[in-house]
Measured scan of single mutants.
Amino acid sequence: KKVLATKVLGTVKWFNVRNGYGFINRNDTKEDVFVHQTAIKKNNPRKYLRSVGDGETVEFDVVEGEKGAEAANVTGPDGVPVEGSR
């Protein structure tokens, strides 16, 4: 997949743990970017399912997906594990 941007910060708009996807709002362009649970690189080690929490700040790369921009290599800021869904 073509990389459109790297090390982008954003805020998780919503994430559905059961369906394994959601959207992140980019801090720079204010665009919403699709995020799938497989894109989460560093999950909260205390959680079994990969997820990001609503309102959580995350860092990610933006790649060209089949339906437009999507997140890849999702971590917390500066590469720490994500907090995950509460």
Rank of each mutant, 00 (worst) to 15 (best):
G53M: 13
K42L: 14
T75D: 06
D61V: 00
F23P: 03
A72W: 12
L49N: 12
T6I: 07
F60I: 03
G55F: 06
G84L: 12
E59F: 08
S85F: 10
K47W: 11
R46F: 13
V62Q: 01
K2V: 04
R46E: 12
D28H: 01
R86T: 14
Y48N: 15
K42C: 15
E66H: 09
F34E: 06
N19R: 15
D28Q: 01
E56K: 08
W14T: 07
A71M: 00
K13L: 06
N25M: 11
Q37D: 06
P45N: 13
E59G: 03
N73I: 02
L9H: 09
Y21I: 06
D78H: 09
V62L: 07
S85M: 12
R26K: 02
V82H: 10
E56L: 09
P77L: 14
V17C: 12
G53P: 09
N16W: 03
E64L: 14
F34A: 05
A69L: 14
G55V: 04
L4F: 05
N73P: 04
G22T: 02
G65T: 09
K41H: 09
E83Q: 15
K41N: 09
D78L: 12
E31T: 08
D28N: 04
D28A: 01
E66L: 12
G79E: 14
G68Y: 07
T57F: 09
Y21F: 08
R46K: 14
V52P: 06
K67G: 08
R46I: 11
V82C: 12
V80W: 10
A39C: 04
V58Y: 01
T29H: 01
K7H: 09
G76T: 14
N25C: 13
A5F: 07
Y48S: 14
V17R: 13
G76Y: 15
P45C: 15
V33K: 03
F23L: 07
K7D: 06
V35G: 02
G84H: 10
K30E: 07
E56H: 08
D78G: 15
N25Y: 07
P45D: 12
V8G: 02
D54E: 15
G22K: 04
K47R: 13
V17G: 08
H36C: 06
F60K: 02
W14V: 04
V35L: 10
P45R: 14
K42G: 15
T57R: 08
V33N: 01
V3T: 08
E70L: 06
K2Y: 00
K2D: 04
V80T: 13
A71W: 00
K7P: 03
G22R: 02
D78N: 15
G22V: 01
V12R: 00
G84Q: 12
V80C: 13
V8D: 04
D61L: 00
G79K: 11
F15K: 02
P45W: 10
L4H: 06
V58Q: 03
E83V: 14
F15H: 04
P81V: 10
V63S: 01
E56N: 09
V62D: 03
N43V: 13
E70F: 10
V74P: 00
G65L: 00
T75S: 09
N43D: 12
D54P: 15
V63K: 01
N44R: 11
S85N: 11
K13Y: 00
E70S: 06
S51G: 12
D78P: 09
E64V: 12
K1G: 08
N44L: 11
N44D: 11
A72N: 07
R18V: 08
K13S: 06
L49P: 12
V62I: 13
N27C: 08
A69R: 11
T57D: 07
Q37F: 15
G53V: 14
W14F: 08
W14E: 07
N27G: 06
T11S: 06
A71E: 01
H36D: 07
A5D: 08
D32C: 02
V82F: 12
F23M: 08
K41S: 11
T57A: 09
G53D: 11
N19Y: 10
E64Q: 13
A5N: 06
I40W: 08
S85H: 15
W14D: 07
T57M: 09
R18F: 08
V3H: 03
K1E: 05
F23V: 09
G20I: 07
G76V: 15
G20D: 04
Y48T: 14
F15L: 03
G53H: 13
K41R: 10
V35D: 04
A71F: 00
D32P: 03
F23G: 03
T29P: 02
G65C: 07
R26W: 00
A39F: 03
E31M: 05
K2I: 04
N44T: 10
E64D: 08
A5Y: 04
